[in-house]
């Protein structure tokens, strides 16, 4: 209730971003509004080429098989990612958050539904996506500059060197180009990993708990760094995490997923604190309110 109120107020105050707020508001509607969801889907499909929307994740289901049987991991999951948006996905552990990212990047094929990036339905979307994993996964036998260019090398993209080096310079890693990963701190390594992801100029960044392996102090810094790099470079990103406060401090909008099979349980719009940095957000009085809201939604998952 309060949250819907917040969204509306924001829309009123800022007419310019009303379209985007509207969209999130649409996703915000609860189960009672499920009935007219199909109508909305049609509307969304018409708006497929809408410049505002980068990713259409349409009615995706995934069943996977193993020896013990089959599991419905994702069921009719449906959401949009707007251009330039940092979308967070939180949910109870094992609910299939990582699976969602794998489906977006087409590492896993969904059993039903489809994913459209930039209005284009492609079988393999890996060239459009840049993936950042929990650990930095830097290759210890390659220098920092070689590591950063790994994605471009694998994807056989020419002429990424200048851009990658410019990013290293811009984000304080220029002096470490010829060092090896073992000579860098955990926070620096994670920044290198992000730049490796950015070096192939992906349309969409997929961040899979990229701070999970860092200690708390480092994590606060790196969250700030990554947030400002993504915003500076005007990237669209989907950020998966189990850490509620991390999601609030980074994202523009948060999807709360239910436990398996994953469905969107609720959408939290963070536009009121959107302009704040992660550290500032943690100090904002709204922070606790969002936290409680998400926490409550993650708790009563059983009903």
């Amino acid at each position: 209730m309060t949250k819907n109120h917040l969204v509306k107020r924001n829309t009123d105050e800022n007419g310019l971003i009303s379209a985007r707020a509207d969209l999130s508001y649409k996703n915000n509607t609860d189960k009672n509004a499920r009935a007219d969801l199909s109508d909305k889907n049609d509307a969304d499909k018409n708006a497929l080429h809408d410049a505002e929307i980068l990713v259409n994740f349409e009615n995706v289901s995934l069943t996977y098989h193993d020896k013990t049987g089959e599991t419905l991991a994702v069921s009719g999951l449906d959401f949009r990612v707007n251009r330039g948006e940092l979308l967070g996905i939180v949910g109870p552990s094992g609910c299939g958050k990582t699976t969602v990212l794998s489906i977006i990047s087409s590492i896993i094929k969904p059993s039903e539904g489809r994913v459209v990036i930039g209005g284009e339905e492609a079988k393999d979307r890996r060239d459009k996506c840049g993936y950042m994993l929990q650990r930095d996964e830097l290759f210890p036998w390659l220098t920092i500059s070689q590591n950063v260019l790994l994605g471009a090398k694998v994807k056989k993209m020419k002429g990424r060197k200048d851009y990658a080096y410019a990013l290293l310079d811009k984000y304080g890693l220029g002096d470490f180009k010829n060092r090896y990963p073992s000579q860098l701190s955990g926070g620096m390594r994670q920044r290198v990993a992000l730049i490796r992801t950015l070096a192939t100029a992906p349309e969409l960044l997929l961040l899979d708990e990229p701070f999970g392996a860092l200690d708390f102090q480092t994590r606060l810094h790196v969250v700030g760094d990554v947030h400002s790099i993504i915003k500076n470079e005007k990237k669209t990103a989907v950020f998966v995490t189990h850490d509620i406060s991390e999601a609030i401090s980074m994202c523009d909008r948060i999807l709360i997923l239910s436990s398996r099979p994953a469905k969107v349980k609720k959408t939290i719009d963070l536009s009121p604190i959107k302009e704040l940095s992660p550290i500032e957000r943690r100090e904002s009085p709204l922070f606790q309110k969002y936290f409680e809201d998400i926490w409550k939604n993650l708790q009563n998952k059983k009903d």
Binding site: S105, Y131, E137, V154
Partner: peptide
């Protein structure tokens, strides 16, 4: 390392 293989998978 499975993580590094996954990384290469994401790079196609």
């Amino acid at each position: 390392d499975k993580g590094k293989l996954t990384l290469l998978d994401t790079m196609n």
